[in-house]
Nucleic acid binder design. Structure first.
Lengths: 239, 239
DNA sequence: GTCTATAATAAGATAGAC
DNA sequence: GTCTATCTTATTATAGAC
């Protein structure tokens, strides 16, 4: 139904794509709520009204931008996880499950077809502004994948109570989102700049050991000083 | 210089406090940027113009709300850390350093003098919207405390390269901020609701082992498959 | 499909009476 | 100190010519 190049003043077909690309990069830099349609259409070099013509509203544009990335990303994550489990004999070690969670995002971020490269930060933003645009949208997008990873992690750490696992996944996603959102927050921590802040692969390589250790940590004592139970299978450090 | 109860239509002295309280609770629930002055003055049951009279601008109000909490909080954290170090002989275990980071926030959140109790979420919000209102404000507020904790953690894990430590602190703050921001994001992870989501103490008790293990995790192999080095002192799990 | 022009809303800030 | 009324600005969204 769409045009194939007719009589419009501009090339025609690519306006929608230009808008998605401009919106994505601006959302990445500034967040969703802080970015106006005027900024988006200016960067895309299209008319302001084009947003409403192609998407209907700013909300719909936001959803479209996210869906374009999150859909394939979570599919890739689950597929990656499926493949790892199919190849392995027993339950996967936690580190490999984290790989399945992080590497597809890393690949996406370095796909030269995607203009700006750092799609990671867009995802971080999405998790950093949950109450604004994606109150009921993001959960649907993530619930399937989240359940799948919870299942895998539960198999990797059969002794960890489910309630504890849920919390630790929450902590994990928090660390991931924060790191992915990037830029501003980084300067808060260090007097010195964190090294390699712009290299996603380096970040992932540092993140996996941190999260794997956290996920497999001994559980806290109930409330008194009784000894902690061993949480997971502790594949590397078991005696 | 301020009034002591004169001829104004309303009680008088407490308008400023009412504004701070209303703003704080609304920022907590919706974030900073999403909250308008009109909502704030409506909840505080004061006139719209009062904000500009007492604070000068919305930005100044935001800073005031944050400073009222973050200042004392970070002071308490550093004092707590100082006291722990004074009492201890050697370097502190990582778990205790994390205590110093989290318990003062926990106490603040349960101070019955503070109306709504969950000040934690305000702090989480502050870290979740870094680019908006606190671009240069939050860093100043945190830099001193952050350096202090980096120092303590460096002593606890003398073998961990500083670059690695900075990143791990970053991951740590991310997990903390995400958990503190609370509410919306929590539903993303689990089909089931996370237990005790409204009990800060329970969250802290689960968070400390997770973060302590992450901070002390073995470092990643450089790029190939060479064996990881032991990062910190691993006080509990050392062979 | 694209554009100009404009409507409709909501925001932060101020002036000036009381 | 507080209030009403208003200004200015920025936003999303639309109507209608081309």
């Amino acid at each position: 139904m769409a045009s194939v190049g007719r009589s419009g003043p501009k090339p025609g077909v690519e306006t929608r794509e230009r808008l998605l690309a401009a919106a994505e990069s601006l959302f990445m830099e500034q967040g969703f709520r802080s970015t106006s349609l005027r900024e988006i259409t200016a960067r895309a070099k299209v008319n302001l009204a084009a947003v409403n013509y192609h998407f209907g509203s700013k909300d719909a544009l936001v959803r479209e931008v996210l869906q374009r990335r999150l859909g394939p990303l979570n599919e890739a994550r689950v597929q990656y996880l499926d493949r790892l489990e199919a190849e392995a004999s027993g339950p996967l070690p936690v580190e490999r499950i984290l790989e399945a969670l992080l590497l597809p995002a890393l690949r996406l971020s370095r796909n030269p077809l995607e203009h700006g490269s750092t799609v990671l930060r867009l995802l971080g933003r999405a998790f950093s502004e949950p109450g604004d645009y994606m109150k009921d949208f993001l959960p649907d997008q993530y619930r399937v994948a989240a359940r799948r990873f919870q299942q895998a992690l539960g198999r990797a750490m059969p002794h960890l109570p489910e309630s504890e696992l849920v919390w630790r996944m929450h902590f994990t996603f928090g660390a991931i989102a924060y790191v992915m959102a990037g830029d501003d927050a980084l300067q808060l921590v260090a007097s010195c700049q964190a090294p390699e802040a712009d290299n996603p692969e380096a970040i992932v390589r540092r993140l996996v050991p941190f999260l794997a250790a956290g996920l497999q940590a001994p559980t806290a004592p109930p409330l008194d000083g009784s000894p902690p139970t061993l949480a997971g299978t502790l594949p590397r450090r078991a005696a």
